[in-house]
Nucleic acid binder design. Structure first.
Length: 658
RNA sequence: AGCGGGGUAGGGCAGUCAGGAGUGCCCGUCGGGCUCAUAACCCGAAGGUCGGUAGUUCAAAUCUACCCCCCGCUACCA
């Protein structure tokens, strides 16, 4: 029998829109693992793909005026393009709309579950929200309404669906997860799923064709379509040959690692193993669950045009540095942070200054002063210090802690830098060339080892360094100091320090100075006042909730700050076209004012661009501005109208500005 | 509100599960060294009541209980 291959997968992406940073994160992590196990000498098969059924895809396609298939083809291509740009070395790309491979496999799996007696039909009566297109539980409702669509009525809908006996398997699954036969990494996720499994109920496994037409038909029952579990999760085995290529399946399955995000833990650590058990298929060995990337400083979302686009980021920072940052940004058991200032900092001060510079420094020195030749190396202290690091790096990789693995690698090059400094070869080579050759021999070997260690993270950099040394395709077992009496190639700078990079910072609000020309009490409300404003070029009417704090008379003539890009709304029947800014602390509200600035003057922060796109009230609520010293402060910057600081007179420090 | 994450030096983090002198990393600041290298590298210093209170203990950043504060998600969520 052929040797078992090392099979690693990512979750399949839902190609309903463009790929975002999260997709980049997951595929980079999986790719790094795939490369790691190749270094270890495994025969790796790496699969990714797309999850193409479901109402959302269907609807979005319709909205764009395309046939579903055209829509999907178009979107999937963008994912494939991204993976190419990211230097992702996958072997198989599975699409759930693939009739030859996937449909066959999914059908085979369904039939197996039927044979095991684990699928049964049940009438399901549920509370259905048309807005969400999904069933809600009693608990999720707020005052009997869907929290996301409070204006719509919840309908009681009765459907007949197939159900899968998850409950039958929950005990067994708890066992295998506890024993690490199905290893859930990290620990926190393992605990989480174990507590979920205790109360696991059977799951709905199909949808009537009438409510979900875009999916795989249930075998022998035309009225039903498979729900996402059998349709999507099954990709891991169908792509490996289940139901379509038994020989291949034997080589690949069980999967060695599934890489997924924390949001789909339940499906992979509970539903999926239960399905496999029911079908009599072995379980995957490991489930590696990553957190999310928080896009700090720019988390305003789509409406403000502030989405971080992985394509643009790679373009800006380069593939390897981007991979380096992404992998280094994720703590093993919590969310990571992506912000461009940190990206630049880490690339410049760690990647370039420490590691890349060490490589160049060593190789170019050897080129220039030693005729590119190194000799045998002495037994020496630095080697003893470095050798144990190889195991530490491996250990961290095996824990899937890329962040720590990178930290360990950086220590190797830091040790190299220190050694170079101590030995002062730039002096030594003038007095004792042979001695200098030994020192550089040691250094070149360190560079060689670094090129191996760093390979899963930065494949391009790794192979380029090896090229410069004159070696190729080194594996983990080549981590040694055996390179001697040889000539190296020409040194080149591979990763440059980033300078003059512009980080586009957008302040989500478009603020202007407005003078109150008229103020009246709102006839229908006891908290609101209606203000007529002069904004220089234009007039506006806004409604503000400050009746308790100000009389209408004292408001007239004030020059205040108004949000001008807010979607207009009617408040108790009167249209409000904007919102004034005030410092709010409990029941106090103090209006932000300016003295000299003319009506219509742009208000903002010179460091930020002002967003002009219209935003919704929820987006506005996300803007964190606070009072410090009677000034409005955002990101440590003081809000200004031209040169003039905007004042909230008498406002307490820490008051929210809203 | 529910769920999740967090509060450790001026900023950003690791350390906490298996308690043992505040140990460490990156940036910033200050001082020194080096000049091979991408103004990179090396050495050193200043800077902390480890969110609070109470407890367990010979010993608590770490364990227990209670409390306070921040953030994220319910949405393009991998």
């Amino acid at each position: 029998m052929a040797k078992k291959k090392f099979y690693i997968t990512t979750a399949i992406a839902y190609p309903n829109g463009r790929p975002h940073m999260g997709h980049a994160l997951e595929i980079i992590q999986a790719d790094a693992l795939a490369r790691l196990y190749k270094l270890f000498g495994e025969d790796v098969v790496f699969q990714t793909g797309t999850d193409e059924h479901g109402m959302k895809n269907w609807q979005t396609a319709e909205k764009e005026g395309l046939s579903v298939q055209d829509f999907l083809d178009k979107n999937v291509k963008v994912f494939v393009d991204l993976y190419k740009i990211l230097n992702i070395n996958y072997d198989n790309f599975i699409r759930t709309t693939d009739k030859n491979v996937h449909y066959k496999g999914a059908n085979a799996l369904w039939k197996k579950l039927v044979e095991s007696g684990d699928l049964y039909k049940k009438k399901y009566k549920g509370l259905y929200c048309v807005g969400c297109e999904s069933f809600k539980t009693e608990k999720e409702l707020v005052d009997g309404k869907c929290p996301n669509h409070p204006t719509r009525e919840i309908q009681v809908v009765e459907e007949e669906n197939y159900f899968f006996k998850l409950s039958k398997y929950s005990k067994k699954i708890i066992e295998v997860i506890k024993k690490d036969e199905y290893k859930v990494v990290p620990e926190t996720r393992k605990n989480e799923i174990l507590s979920f499994l205790k109360g696991a109920k059977d799951i709905s496994f199909s949808r009537p064709k009438s409510s979900l037409s875009w999916g795989i038909p249930v075998p022998d029952d035309e009225d039903h379509v498979m729900y996402v579990w059998c349709d999507a999760l099954s990709n891991y085995i169908t792509g490996a040959g289940y139901g379509n290529n038994e020989k291949r399946l034997k080589e690949l399955w069980p999967a060695d690692i599934h890489v997924i995000g924390k949001d789909i833990l339940r499906f992979h650590a509970a539903f999926w193993p239960a399905m496999l058990m029911s079908a009599g298929v072995g379980l995957p060995k490991e489930l590696f669950v990553h957190g999310f990337l928080q896009l700090s400083g720019m988390k305003m979302g789509k409406s403000t045009g502030n989405v971080v686009d992985p394509f643009a980021q790679v373009e800006k920072y380069g593939i390897d540095p981007f991979r380096f940052y992404i992998l280094g940004a994720m703590p093993i058991d919590s969310d990571g942070d992506y912000n461009e200032e940190a990206v630049i900092e880490r690339i410049n001060n760690e990647l370039v200054a420490n590691l890349a510079n060490f490589c160049y420094r060593v190789l170019s020195f050897t080129n220039k002063n030693l005729d590119s030749r190194i000799s045998t190396i002495d037994e020496n202290k630095v080697i003893d210090e470095i050798k144990p690091k190889f195991d530490s790096v491996k250990e961290q990789f095996e824990k899937r802690d890329f962040k720590q693995a990178i930290a360990e690698i950086m220590e190797v090059s830091a040790l190299g830098n220190r050694y170079f400094q101590e030995k002062e070869p730039w002096k030594l080579f003038k007095e004792d060339e042979e001695k200098a050759r030994e020192v550089l021999g040691t250094c070149v070997n360190i560079v060689k080892c670094l090129s191996i260690l760093v390979n899963p993270i930065m494949p391009e950099f790794s192979s380029e360094i090896q090229k410069q040394i004159g070696v190729k395709d080194l594996k983990w077992k080549d981590l040694d100091f055996s390179l001697s009496d040889c000539k190296i190639g020409k040194a080149k700078i591979l990763i440059k320090k980033l300078e003059n990079i512009e980080i586009e910072k957008v302040f989500p609000l478009n603020l202007k100075v407005a003078q109150i020309v008229k103020a009246e009490e709102h006839p229908e409300a006891d908290k609101l006042v209606v203000l007529q404003l002069d904004l220089g070029e234009e007039k506006r009417q806004i409604v503000a909730g400050i009746k308790k704090n100000y009389s209408v008379d004292e408001l007239v003539g004030k020059k205040i700050v108004v949000v001008t890009n807010l979607k207009p709304a009617k408040l108790r029947g009167i249209e409000s076209n904007g919102m004034l800014l005030a410092a709010v602390h409990k029941d106090d509200a103090i209006v932000l004012e300016v003295k000299d600035a003319k009506p219509g003057t742009q208000v903002g922060f010179p460091e930020y661009e002002n967003n002009t796109a219209q935003i919704k009230i929820d987006d506005f609520a996300k803007v964190k501005m606070k009072v410090e010293n009677e000034r409005a402060v955002y990101d440590h910057l003081v809000l200004k109208a031209g040169d003039e600081e905007v004042i909230a007179k008498g406002a307490k420090d820490g008051s929210k500005v809203s």
